[in-house]
Amino acid sequence: MPNKVLNPGLPPDFKPEPNPGMPAPLKKGKQAKGHSEEDVLQPQQRLTFAGLLLPGMILFVVFFIGSFIFVVGYSFQRFSPTEGTIDGFTLDNYQKALSDESIHNIFGRTIRISLVVTGLGVLLAYPVALALSRIEGFRRTLLFVLVISPLFISGVIRAFAWSQAMVRPGIINEVLIWLGVIQTTGRLNLLYTEAAVIIGLLEVILPFIILPLSSSIRKQDPALASAAQSLGANPLVTFWRVTFPLSLPGLVAGTSLSFIICMGSYVTPDLLGGPRLPVMATEVYRQVNYMSDWSLGGALAFILLAFTMTVVSLYNRLLNGKG
């Protein structure tokens, strides 16, 4: 799995710098023991290392890996409404998931929403990322906190706020009337539409695109832009020819994360899209909690995971290969 996705926002140089005074190129043909100084741990160090990792390893192997094994395991088992899941290998769930028209629609809607949201997210993220990389001091801190603090506010609260804003006599319609965009008689029915889900998700994922983007713009030497302008490029050309290509790693990281979040989001589509616009996550939840069909739920979850990760790693390979 590509490093970029798993380290969202972390600078790509998320590795300790090589030791100064590292050996010059290989001189004598000794048997290669590894790649660097730290490869060869002393027995004492090995023990410390193992001891330090042990609690984390237990937690992650048992409960993280375990969870995946069970999702996958259940998705290959038969489900009967009376007896629950029955042991034995079957592809029925996948067949059902891939042939059912309504699931097709749900999957299609999930992908459509995720792509639109991520695309709009890029357009909206660039100005903010540029602003974040240009300003300093208190204004920057303020902008930064404004951008990221919603990140940590539960999605329920934000989806709830949007739903209250989108109701017929809500703030959005009032503002649009005040602006003269619509008439008092022509109030928009925003809630429980795909547009509502897209707006809600856009607000969720924007910080995730802005952050890696601004850090990769900020890492660029400001002299590069100055150099381009001194060579006769106007600000737009400078952005397109210098700033933008160099910000691609951040963009790839941010959009990958955005796509993953959209594909798996539950509460925003549920509260803003309503039961008539199910997406994959709400469907998985419905299968598990209301239909008690854990096997179909598992299959849907696995399809969601496999599809998302395949798209994201292809995307990363494509863009990083060029970069």
Binding site: A24, K27, K28, K30, K33, G34, H35, D39
Partner: peptide, 10 residues
């Protein structure tokens, strides 16, 4: 002292 296959101090 070797680092991997290369000789750092000979």
């Amino acid at each position: 002292k070797y680092y991997g296959g290369s000789l750092a101090v000979d």
